[in-house]
Design a protein around this nucleic acid. Structure first.
Length: 1005
RNA sequence: GGGCGUAUAGCUCAGCGGGAGAGCACUGCAUUGACAUUGCAGGGGUCACAAGUUCAAUCCUUGUUACGCCCACCA
């Protein structure tokens, strides 16, 4: 016998162990021979992560699909795994190390030791989330767990091979390349990040207006006109007015630009002006140029151009050959290295004098930062610059201004646009087939309104910056020769081969000389300074020079012609690692064994559905589409189901800072995993965020208890599973009715899950169990079980067992633990676990039985309603008189007599020609039911009740007959609609007659 | 600036071209037998506003208002 309530805390671990032992979720477990494959890859949680509400929703939905398809007999693979999450993980481990003391920074440790520490940490505490997912009931094939960084220490690890293979192939195809561009630089983590990792947030800022004096004290006539061409200002100026929100970048200005049609500045175009910062004797002069970029109507119409620190300026500088000066170091402090200030100034003069191109190599080598600003943090420098200019009297004004400021999504620091060398993927090229795949329906987004978002982003996609100056990640498989020449290969040996081939073919003496110089040692050191500087995390050796550790060396022979009998080539590996999302992009095929041609790859790729939140559509979904199509020649998934965010009950995004985070594990502890899952499923309506109120979870926990107790009731009444049971063989109307309802619910749930309408599926299950099975079927069976009809009793015991079994199955995807538990305890010897039981078929329907029982339900409800409104004490029994019953009603009354008596507390049922005195009356189809309540009846109340009823009927009739009286309605509406309205009118008329008769009878009393 | 979305009961939300729904909350009644994590009954809505399409609009179209999100962005 079942306990009175279900104890999730003790049952869940037991059930989980059962599944574990049976290896119930291994790919293909429980599948029929020759079954169709069904595969899902999990969005790999961060190795640092712990289960949050988003994971709970995401994995609940995946698990519903996995369990559903498994029960439908498919060969299901739900592929689990974790993401190494470059920045996030490195950050966590660094933070932990820093708590140990000052000497535990990653730099103190060195790269190798630090990375080893991360692996150690991963082994100890990483992957916590897997246990949490198991607590949620996730039916992944845990034996296939993958990690985007592969297994530590294994040479030739396949997950690493996949990344290398992809990089090398894309490199050879020209789709990966190195470029010097403006990148988003995170000054906290000292790495480049991609556009997607930047959040633009509006903040309060200032816009300063400064005077840039014309060189040599020159002046011009400044004329400002209004829209009609009337002069509104005319004065002689010695300066040009420049507005900026970032004064500290003035030090790196390369020019001032105005729009070519801007007449105000025509006299001074091509002249020089002075940047009003730095030692007076050394102020740098920059040219005034024209470009389409400046907006005449914004500010003064003149823009300072700082190509190395602003994305728009970068474009202007590139177009016009303006030099770009990188002002800051990797931490965002003003550079403290480089050439003296005067040298930069003269270089700038030279540039202008010859009207020539900037010397690209000189760009980084020159330091334009005057002594007083060196080493200052950029924001400190800003204050100083402003103060200095103000002190010189060159500040015109300062305005308060809302500015959009870029922040790193992980670091929270202000992102600095920085001119650096990075690796890029040509995303534009890869996006083309990925766009076509969705446009041509090979991959469907659900709900489909995400299509537009996808297209919009994909069609405007920018080069994807994939290199990161971190230590935790896949190191880029590129090695540099002594002259900086890049060799991209699967490993060092292959890179060396490439290098040998390259250098041996380079038999031009001069070229070779340039590559190696006379002394390979000195050249090597020189090159490593360029390739590996402090920013990239190499360690300084004791002599203070920068050194990189060569992986190994190779001796090359055979180029004696060049005069070098033997040259030693040391290749230095690119120290950067790849963006985390690079390896995640390969997830649908790397987890299946690619680049090997494994059977799993053949069987489970293309995956069926990806379940994910909209927040990673760009980060992840789009990239998987690109990589999957490029390398597998087939889209990675048939369907992408995009779910919403989980918010708190007030619609706020959950965040630690707001303190409104709900921990799913707490909810599982309190209510059980099933309750949480069911709540998430029933609230997961497409296209709307899930606002989670713990009160709802309690409600759905109660739902589980309801089912539990329904089973308990069945147990008490001798439920009996009959393997040969067929719904068609049931005789009792109540049984045929519940079997019909079961079938209807089965169809509804099946259709809804298939269409990813999880809320509809859960809702249908809820209504079936609570409102049909418990509220009515069990209540209607009570008289049967208490009665003397042994055949009816026996049938009901079998039907009940069957209905419950099917219900367990229908609910299993949503509430796997409790249903598995109930399945296990309700029969002596189950051949299979519930999770491998066949999904119910919706094959039975008996409309006549449905009508019959629905009539009974209506009758009971009507009587209860009257009793309640008349305040009849529950203990009081009253007889029921039925007036004007036809043959069918008489039959029904006879068959359901016991049920009616019991459920509506009626003492006896009598057919009658007239209504007895002092009775409340209600409609029973063509007949009228009368409850002679004698002194209990409140004539006034009953009269009012009937009047209200009549008003409702008449109101409805007016509406319906209005419609039917409208010729155009009859002519234009669909025939079945017209017919339905006619039938409804007839029904209402019948009711009206009954109610009027009842009123009349009441009046006679 | 571009795109997406939302507005239905006190709250959280389904629904959607032909009779306004659920859960929670609220009110009344019920406590020996599946279940108080319960049962029965009930109150509560100009379906944001306006115009249009239609025989018919909560639903479709357009506009307005309010709120939310994503992308881009003027120094």
């Amino acid at each position: 016998m079942l306990e009175k309530t279900y104890d999730s805390a003790s049952a869940e671990p037991r059930i989980a162990a059962l599944w574990d032992k049976a290896e119930a979720f291994k790919a293909g477990a429980g599948a029929k021979p020759g079954a169709e494959a069904f595969s899902i890859v999990i969005p790999p949680p961060n190795v640092t992560g712990s289960l949050h509400m988003g994971h709970a929703l995401n994995n609940t939905l995946q698990d519903i699909l996995a369990r559903f398809e498994r029960m439908r007999g498919k060969d299901v693979l739900w592929q689990p795994g974790m993401d190494h999450a470059g920045i996030a993980t490195q950050m966590v481990v660094e933070r932990q190390l820093s708590q140990k003391g000052a000497n535990f920074g990653r730099r103190d440790m060195g790269r190798e030791a630090f990375v080893e520490k991360i692996w150690e940490w991963k082994a100890e505490s990483g992957g916590l989330i897997f246990n949490q997912l198991k607590r949620l009931g996730a039916s992944c094939d845990w034996s296939r767990e993958k990690f985007t960084m592969g297994a530590h220490g294994e040479a030739g690890d396949q997950m690493v091979d996949a990344v290398t293979e992809v990089f090398v192939q894309l490199y050879n195809e020209g789709l990966i390349y190195k470029d010097k561009r403006l990148v988003n630089w995170d000054t906290k983590f000292e790495t480049a990040i991609s556009d997607l990792e930047v959040e633009n947030i509006e903040v309060d800022g200032f816009m300063w207006h400064f005077k840039y004096p014309l060189a040599g004290g020159e002046s011009y006539e400044y004329v400002e006109k209004d829209a009609d061409g009337n002069v509104t200002l005319r004065e002689t100026r010695h300066y040009i007015s420049i507005a900026t929100t970032r004064p500290e970048t003035m030090l790196g200005d390369g020019a001032v630009a105005v729009h070519p049609s801007d007449e105000r500045y025509r006299p001074i175009i091509g002249k020089l002006c002075e940047i009003p910062v730095g030692p007076k004797e050394h102020r740098r002069l920059i040219p005034i140029i024209t470009d389409e970029y400046p907006d005449k109507d914004f500010g003064s119409g003149a823009v300072k151009i700082t190509g190395a620190h602003d994305a728009n300026d970068y474009g202007v500088a590139t177009r016009n050959g303006i030099p770009m000066y990188r002002l800051m170091d990797t931490k965002g402090a003003m550079r403290a290295d480089g050439a003296p200030y005067a040298e930069a100034a003269s270089q700038a003069r030279a540039f202008v004098a010859v009207g020539g191109q900037p010397d690209a190599n000189a760009v980084d080598a020159v330091n334009l930062v005057p002594d007083e600003y060196r080493g200052l943090d950029r924001f400190e420098a800003r204050k100083r610059v402003v103060a200095d200019i103000d002190a010189d009297g060159l500040m015109i004004m300062v305005e308060n201004k809302k500015i959009m400021q870029p922040f790193g999504d992980r670091s929270g620091t202000v992102i600095e646009p920085m001119l650096t060398d990075q690796w890029y993927v040509n995303a534009e090229e890869l996006a083309k087939p990925a766009i076509a795949a969705v446009r041509e329906g090979r991959t469907k987004l659900v709900p489909e309104n995400w299509d537009k978002t996808y297209y919009q982003w994909m069609e405007n996609i920018q080069p994807w910056c994939i290199s990161r100056q971190l230590w935790w990640g896949h190191q880029i498989p590129v090695w540099y020769g002594p002259d900086g020449k890049a060799f991209c290969a699967e490993n060092y040996e292959l890179a060396i081969e490439q290098a040998e081939e390259y250098y041996s073919e380079l038999n031009d003496d001069a070229a070779l000389g340039e590559a190696f110089n006379d002394s390979t040692i000195s050249q090597y050191e020189k090159i490593t300074v360029v390739a590996v500087d402090d920013a990239y995390g190499s360690s300084k050796d004791q002599s203070g020079r920068y050194r990189a550790k060569p992986n190994s060396s190779s001796t090359m022979t055979g180029i004696e012609d060049g005069g070098y009998a033997e040259i030693e080539i040391d290749l230095v590996r690119d120290p950067d690692v790849l963006d985390t999302w690079f390896s995640s992009a390969l997830w649908p095929f790397s987890t299946l064994g690619w680049p090997e041609k494994t059977p799993e790859l053949a069987r489970y790729y293309q995956t069926d559905v990806l379940v994910t939140g909209f927040d990673i559509i760009f980060f992840w979904v789009a990239r998987m589409m690109m990589m999957g199509i490029h390398f597998m020649k087939e889209e990675p998934f048939h369907t992408v189901y995009v779910h919403a965010l989980v918010r708190d009950k007030d619609g706020q995004k959950m965040s630690k800072s707001k303190g409104n985070v709900i921990d799913p594990l707490d909810l599982i502890d309190e209510y059980g995993a099933d309750a949480l899952r069911f709540t998430l499923a029933i609230m997961a309506a497409q296209g709307r965020d899930v606002k989670l109120d713990p009160a709802r979870i309690a409600g759905y926990r109660n739902f589980g208890t309801k089912l539990w107790n329904a089973t308990r009731f069945a147990e008490m009444n001798g439920m009996k599973a009959d393997p040969d049971f067929k719904p068609e063989n049931a005789k009792l109307a109540v049984n045929r009715w519940i079997l019909t309802e079961l079938s209807r619910a089965t169809a509804e749930i099946t259709d809804a899950i298939t269409a990813f309408r999880f809320n509809d599926a859960a809702g249908a299950a809820y209504r079936f169990v609570w409102n049909q099975l418990c509220d009515w079927h069990l209540e209607l069976l009570k008289p049967v079980f208490m009665g003397a009809d042994e055949a009816a009793k026996a049938e009901s015991q079998v039907v009940l067992a069957h209905v419950l079994d099917e219900t367990f199955k229908l609910l299993h995807p949503f509430m796997p633990f409790m249903t598995e538990e109930l399945w296990g305890v309700t029969a002596e010897k189950r051949k299979t676990l519930l999770c491998h039981a066949p999904w119910p078929q919706a094959s039975f329907s008996d409309p006549a039985a449905a009508d019959d029982v629905n009539w009974l339900i209506d009758t009971v409800t009507a009587i209860r309603s009257i009793r309640s409104e008349m305040n009849v004490p529950p203990a009081t029994q009253a007889p029921l008189y039925v007036v004007g019953a036809n043959a069918q009603t008489k039959d029904r009354l006879a068959r359901h007599e016991t049920a009616i008596k019991r459920l509506s507390r009626v003492s006896e049922i009598q057919l009658s020609d007239t209504a007895p005195k002092s009775s409340a009356q209600f409609t029973m189809g063509e007949a009228t039911g009368c409850l002679p309540l004698g002194s209990l009846i409140d004539l006034t109340a009953e009269n009012a009740r009937l009047a209200k009823e009549l008003a409702r009927i008449e109101g409805d009739m007016a509406k319906v007959s209005g419609k039917l009286g409208n010729e155009r309605f009859v002519a234009n509406a669909k025939p079945e609609v017209v017919a339905a309205e006619r039938a409804r009118l007839a029904e209402l008329e019948g009711e009206k007659v009954n109610v009027e008769a009842a009123k009349a009878r009441l009046a006679e009393l």
